[in-house]
Design a protein around this nucleic acid. Structure first.
Lengths: 129, 129
DNA sequence: TCTTAATGTTTACGTCCGTAATCGTAATGT
DNA sequence: ACATTACGATTACGGACGTAAACATTAAGA
C-alpha cells in the first residue's frame, strides 16, 4: 500500500504525469477517454493507462467516482500544485533554494530569448504594480 | 552495459548527483575522500559511494585516473552542463519550453522574495547592458 | 440464456535506483 | 612468508517505473 493521507505525498512519475495532464485539461474522464487522449502523444495500450490510473488513485492524485459499472477519473491535486512542487524541488536541489539563481542561470545560458526577457520585464512591472 | 560515447548521455540520478557535487567542489579525489565529504550530508557507507562512482564512470560522467593501485576521480561533465540540462528539462516538461512561464509561475506563487525580484531586475539590466 | 464486450484488479517482468555486502587482488606491516 | 588492509569489481535485493497481459465481473447483445 502507498501512503494514505498522513505521510508526505508520493511523487508523480513521468508517465503518470502524462495521464494527469489529460485530466487537468478535461475531467472527469473514463479510462478509455484518457487512453484516447494520451495515446496521441505516447502510444500506450489501454492496459497501461489503467495501470497508471490505478497507481495515481493509490497515490491520492486522482479521485474515482463510480458511474454505472465504470469509474470517472478526476485530478485531486491541482496542476499548479504539482508544477510548484517540481519547480521548488529544482530550485532547492540545484540552486540552493534561490529562485534568482535559477533565473540567472537561464539568462547566462541563452535559455532566455529576447521575447522571454521582455515578457519577464512586463511581469516584473506588474508584480511591483 | 550502459551507453558509451554514441547514445544520448544517461541521466545522473539523485544519489549520483550528491557524489558529483563533491567532485565539482574539489577534484580529483579518491573514493575514500569522496566518501568522507559526502558522508557529511548523507550517511553513506564507503561501499555505496564506490557503487555510485562506478556507475558514474560507466555513464561517462566521471573520469578515473590511476594513481598507484587506486583511482582518482574527476568530473567529466561540468556542473553548469548538468544544471542546464535539468533546468531545460523542467522548462520543457512543465512550461512548454517557455522559460518566461516558469518565471511567471515562480512570481505568482510567492516563490520570489523581494530580494529575488530586485536581483532579477539587476540581472535584466545587465543582460540588456 | 449464452456469448461477448467493457472495465477495474492482479500479476508480470525487465530496468533503474538506493544501499550495501562480498569477492578478488595487490600492497603493507610484522 | 603471512596476515591484514585497501581498493576496485561483482553481486544482491527491495522498491519504483514503464509497459502490459491475464483475470474477474458484469452489462449488453444475439
Amino acid at each position: 500500500m502507498s501512503n494514505r493521507e498522513d505521510t508526505k505525498p508520493d511523487r508523480i512519475s513521468e508517465a503518470e504525469y502524462a495521464v494527469m495532464e489529460v485530466l487537468w485539461d478535461k475531467s472527469p474522464l473514463t479510462a478509455a477517454d484518457v487512453c484516447d487522449e494520451v495515446s496521441k502523444a505516447r502510444g500506450w495500450s489501454l492496459a497501461t493507462v489503467k495501470t497508471l490510473l490505478g497507481r495515481l488513485a493509490n497515490k491520492g492524485a486522482v479521485e474515482t467516482r463510480p458511474d454505472g459499472r465504470r469509474f470517472l477519473y478526476s485530478p485531486i491535486i491541482a496542476r499548479v500544485e504539482y508544477v510548484d512542487g517540481e519547480s521548488r524541488r529544482l530550485v532547492d536541489r540545484l540552486f540552493g533554494g534561490r529562485a534568482s539563481s535559477l533565473f540567472a542561470h537561464l539568462a547566462e545560458n541563452e535559455a532566455l530569448s529576447d521575447k522571454d526577457i521582455s515578457e519577464i520585464e512586463a511581469l516584473l512591472q506588474e508584480i511591483k504594480q
